[in-house]
Amino acid sequence: MNSGPAPSLGEFIANWSIFRDAVITGSLAGALLGFLGVQIILRRMVFASSAIAQAAALGVALSFWVPAAIDPIGHAARHAADPSAHIVPLLFEPVIWALAAALLATLAFIANPVKLHLTRESVLGVVFLVGASGAVIIGDRITQESHDLAAILFGSAVVVERSDLVLVSIATVVILGIHVLLWRPLIFVAYDPTGAQVQDLPVRKLNLFVFLAIGVAVALCTRALGALPVFAFSVLPAMAALTLTDDLAIAFALATGIGALSGGAGYVVSFRGELPVGATQAAVALGVLAAALVRRVIQGLSRRRDRAAR
């Protein structure tokens, strides 16, 4: 623990070039997951993003462990030559493994377990536990990248790679763009899937898009930021937005903004307070939610008082 004076905002600005990618990635991830979070909450699948994030973390852990297990000497030699380099064959790119694991988890979510007399939530529970326990067990077997893995699990990554920024940016533009274009059918399918199916809307394809969008967003953001802030961004901004407004379109916009704010401001606060990044980002989102809840309560009390006065 650093006992010296806390770094100032001036120092942060002076070193902006170092933190820029991390701040932008955090903001973009917050915006993307905040937006998708409204779908996640309204579809009552909050646990899904957590389970998928854990699966993505397991994917990253496997991407570290598999090459080391296949060729332990060569892997150690490469790491010894340049510990900071993460140059690995494309096959073992962590983001690819994170995506693959997240998409597998998403498929488990899409599958209907009713025939097995199980609920979808129980399948998600299994996915979460496989991801979480698998990542810890695999993490225990990794020596060189154990710090990276801890960063992914708990979201303590201070530096974000440029490739992660690029991937999160592309995902944000593509997913939000498609979502805005297909806004009406996506809302219809989320609210009344039976009615949409009777009207011959492509319900399965639309649902598949939402689930895959969540899977891809969670995987990429987990790789960049870690599982903890990813889960926080996919739940808290949307909760705050839905508390602040009854207008669905505004709720999506607000959640996007609150997510972006939590991702960016959380990073700055963590720098100033020398706190773990991911947990601080989650704490900022929690703070916004708390403020939104207080506002809602005050509004309710005020309305009650007005009614009593009449």
Binding site: L181, L182, W183, R184, P185, I187, F188, Y191, D192, G195, A196, Q199, D200, L201, P202
Partner: peptide
């Protein structure tokens, strides 16, 4: 929502 049709899903 009632006016939505397959093939005319994009946009407002």
């Amino acid at each position: 929502m009632g006016a939505l049709e397959r093939g005319k899903l994009l946009g407002p």
